[in-house]
């Protein structure tokens, strides 16, 4: 990802949820994290599509894990350094924009 490129809103949501999971996480865990932190019920297939795109850009990495207790294999994603950098860049952009913005909080007068 070039230094001038920024993350989209849904990309930020997914990567931030992944950043909150210490050991990385699979789709259901990311979905649950987003739901718990924001109350937003996102589409699990959309989470996977986003992660696949981020993986193509080198922001996340994936590995397949089979649970020791058995059951289906899971695809577990972890955030890479470039992913962290992309999140920080996006945050800085918003911080700079927020700093100069005069937002009325009391409604229109």
């Amino acid at each position: 990802m070039g230094s001038r490129e920024y993350l989209g809103e849904f990309e930020q949501v997914v990567l931030l949820a992944l950043a909150r999971l210490d050991e990385g996480g699979h789709g259901a865990a990311i979905h649950a994290e987003i739901l718990a932190a924001s109350g937003r019920d996102v589409s699990i297939p959309a989470v996977y599509v986003t992660l696949k795109r981020m993986e193509g850009k080198g922001l996340v990495a994936s590995r397949v894990e089979t649970p020791a207790e058995g059951g289906r294999a899971r695809k577990v994603y972890t955030l890479l350094p470039d992913g962290h950098a992309a999140l920080l860049r996006s945050r800085e952009l918003f911080d700079r924009l927020w700093a100069g913005a005069r937002i009325r909080t009391g409604g229109a007068s």
């Binding site: 699979h26 789709g27 259901a28 297939p45 996977y48 599509v49 696949k52 289906r72």
Partner: peptide, 24 residues
Amino acid sequence: LLGRLSSPSERDYVLADLDEAFAR
């Protein structure tokens, strides 16, 4: 439908995650 909407390489993981969330 959800299976069709997922790419073939991710399909099994997506359905497994959906099943897991459904069960929870």
